[in-house]
Every structure is written in C-alpha cells, then in structure tokens.
Simulated assay, not measured.
Amino acid sequence: MNRILASARTEFIIALRNRWVTISVVMMVLFSLVLSAAGSAPTGVLGADRLSVTVASLTSLAVYLVPLVALLMSFDAIAGEVERGTLSLVLTYPVARGELVLGK
C-alpha cells in the first residue's frame, strides 16, 4: 500500500507542475464564473438569482469537463513517463506493474 501511495504522491507532484492541468483548471474556473453570472438567463432574468438553474448549469459543466481533465492527467501519467524516458527506470523499482498503474 505504501508503494501505491508513494507513486500517487509522485504523480500528484508532477501533475501540479504540468501546464495543461493548470490551463484546464483555469478554464473550468472561468466557465464556472460565466455560468454563475449568466446561469439564470433561461429564466428571463440576467444575474445569479436562481440558485437551482446555476447549480444545474455547473453540474452539466462538471459532467463534461471533469472526465476530460481526468483523461488528460491519466494519459500524461503513462505517456509522459515514456516521453521523459523515465518509464524504464520506474519499471526497475521493486513495484509490481499493477501497483504502479494503481498509483498513477
């Protein structure tokens, strides 16, 4: 279990330095702010006065963007190791491949 957590911690640190993750988080915040400001436009009133419409809009945003960000991070976790040339080094560690995939 410690090896899986160590691998997950390393991947988290690498993901924090990844600019694509930063860009996607900034875009999600921007979309959320726009939806909060104009989320009640279907009710006929511009502004954030209807909480249920705003929550529904943010939920539909999260349904599409959160899996895309997760896919981006997952792809970079494996393909990034290959691109950086560190996958062969990581595979020499005394960690089973299943534990490595679970950590990533």
Rank of each mutant, 00 (worst) to 15 (best):
M1P: 07
M1Y: 03
N2K: 12
N2V: 12
R3D: 06
R3P: 05
R3V: 12
R3K: 10
A6E: 06
A6H: 06
A6S: 07
A6Y: 02
A6P: 00
S7D: 04
A8S: 14
R9I: 11
R9T: 12
T10C: 07
E11C: 13
F12M: 15
I14R: 14
A15W: 15
A15N: 12
A15D: 08
A15C: 10
L16R: 14
L16V: 07
L16H: 01
L16Y: 00
R19N: 07
W20S: 09
V21T: 12
T22A: 14
I23G: 05
I23T: 07
I23Q: 02
V25H: 05
V25P: 03
V25A: 14
M27W: 12
M28Q: 11
V29K: 01
S32H: 05
L33F: 13
L33Y: 08
V34E: 10
V34T: 08
S36Q: 02
A37K: 09
A37T: 06
A38H: 08
A38D: 03
G39F: 04
G39A: 04
G39D: 03
S40Y: 00
A41C: 08
A41T: 09
P42H: 05
P42M: 07
P42L: 03
V45W: 11
L46R: 01
A48N: 13
D49S: 15
D49F: 11
R50Q: 14
L51P: 06
L51Y: 13
S52R: 08
S52E: 15
V53F: 11
V55Y: 05
V55T: 11
V55G: 02
L58R: 05
T59G: 15
T59Q: 07
T59P: 00
A62P: 01
A62K: 04
A62N: 12
V63D: 01
V63H: 06
V66N: 01
L68G: 09
A70C: 12
A70Q: 09
L71E: 03
L71W: 15
L71C: 09
L72K: 04
L72W: 02
L72S: 10
L72T: 11
L72G: 07
M73D: 01
M73S: 13
S74C: 07
F75H: 08
F75V: 15
F75Y: 14
D76F: 15
D76A: 11
D76P: 00
A77H: 13
A77Q: 05
A77K: 06
A79V: 14
G80Q: 00
G80W: 01
G80T: 08
G80A: 05
G80F: 06
E81Y: 04
E81A: 12
E81C: 11
E81W: 10
V82R: 01
E83K: 15
E83Y: 14
R84I: 01
G85L: 09
T86L: 05
T86K: 07
S88D: 14
S88M: 08
L89T: 12
L89R: 14
V90T: 08
V90K: 09
V90R: 06
V90E: 03
L91I: 09
T92V: 01
Y93S: 06
Y93Q: 10
Y93K: 02
P94L: 00
R97C: 00
E99D: 10
E99H: 04
L100M: 07
L102I: 10
G103E: 03
